[in-house]
């Protein structure tokens, strides 16, 4: 009987603690709920006007637009469409400082950002036709990538139409659990905690040799994207922002394989895609101002997502390029 009484108290306490923690999570770390994007322009979208809070990597409290993307609003026409991963959707600092918004300001064009977490170059290229059809950009599509060394299997999946989209949980217990703000970040944390020791053991060493079929598959994939863009009457720009690492001697190293960078750049050129490598601009940023393009005041230096400095540099480089190019 005494135990049952205590259990009842514990249950009440659990509910109250969950409410307190949800309040905390709503401010500290809340990345909202997403559902499948019916247009296919992205795999998923956040709920309309979704609140997103990030204090784990950068500091941001954002409100998505009515379509569930990180924009101030939905423009009537789109001149420049931004596609990309969590670097592009930028949930880490004030929304008015991201590359898409700044590019819009610097070029005087209407820009719409459909960047979404988990949408690496494979997903963006897979979604490109749907994105072009949905938003019908008039001049440019800007696509972001943090790697120029792609995986042959994943490229083939995109080419074959067998690539799987990022999943959304729209029903069942996982969906309802997401409605409690504390549960999703706690689940993610526990998941990482449980797999932490496995990761230490499973350190794989990827071969640096370029697979034989690599160039062929890459060229085919990019040629298809270039063709899709041309058919839609827009210029496709792919910009590469390399991960960076601060070295003990005070210099910054960019983890890019020259062989893969050249291959990617050449494949883009052949496909009629404008390729922009941000390495030199990031390098200049560090050498002149001691600023890094990645990392925040609450994370490791120079690691993780692009920060406001990185977005500013990217916007400046892209704006210069866009302003120089003739409108098609």
């Amino acid at each position: 009987m005494a135990f049952l009484k205590w259990f009842g108290k514990a249950l009440i306490a659990f509910v109250l603690a969950t409410a307190i923690l949800s309040g905390f999570a709503y401010v500290y770390s809340y990345d909202g709920i997403h559902h499948t994007n019916p247009t296919g322009a992205t795999d998923y979208v956040w709920r309309p006007n979704e609140h997103i809070a990030t204090m784990t990597e950068g500091f941001a409290w954002l409100k998505m637009d009515e379509a569930g993307f990180n924009n101030a609003g939905i423009p009537d026409t789109v001149d420049v469409l931004f596609m990309g991963s969590s670097h592009t959707d930028d949930l880490h600092f004030s929304a008015d400082k991201n590359a898409a918004v700044l590019t819009g300001e610097l070029t005087g064009r209407s820009v719409y950002n459909v960047g979404m977490s988990g949408h690496t170059i494979y997903r963006c290229l897979d979604n490109l036709p749907a994105a072009l059809a949905t938003y019908q950009p008039e001049e440019f599509v800007v696509l972001e990538t943090d790697t120029v060394r792609l995986n042959v299997d994943r490229m083939n999946e995109v080419l074959n139409g067998t690539a799987l989209p990022n999943p959304s949980y729209e029903s069942g217990i996982v969906y309802y659990m997401q409605l409690i703000p504390a549960f999703k970040p706690m689940y993610k944390q526990l998941d990482v905690w449980m797999s932490l020791e496995e990761e230490e053991e499973e350190q794989s060493s990827e071969s640096s040799e370029m697979p034989e079929e690599y160039l062929g598959v890459l060229k085919e994939l990019l040629a298809r994207a270039g063709q899709q863009a041309r058919e839609a009457g827009v210029t496709l720009i792919v910009y590469y922002h390399p991960p960076e690492k601060l070295m003990p001697d005070g210099t910054v190293r960019y983890k890019t394989s020259k062989q893969y960078l050249t291959a990617f750049s050449e494949a883009c050129e052949e496909a009629g895609i404008v390729f922009v490598n941000m390495t030199e601009s990031f390098c200049r940023l560090y050498n002149t101002q001691h600023l890094l393009a990645h990392g925040f005041d609450n994370t490791q230096i120079g690691e993780g997502h692009l920060n406001a400095n990185g977005h500013k540099v990217i916007a400046e480089v892209l704006s210069e390029l866009i302003n120089q190019r003739e409108v098609r």
């Binding site: 108290k9 514990a10 306490a13 659990f14 109250l16 603690a17 969950t18 307190i20 923690l21 905390f24 999570a25 500290y28 770390s29 504390a182 970040p185 706690m186 944390q189 526990l190 905690w193």
Partner: peptide, 15 residues
Amino acid sequence: LVLFFTAVGLLILTA
């Protein structure tokens, strides 16, 4: 118990 569960939750959330 509320304080204790909250502390455990904060540990999980912020670790």
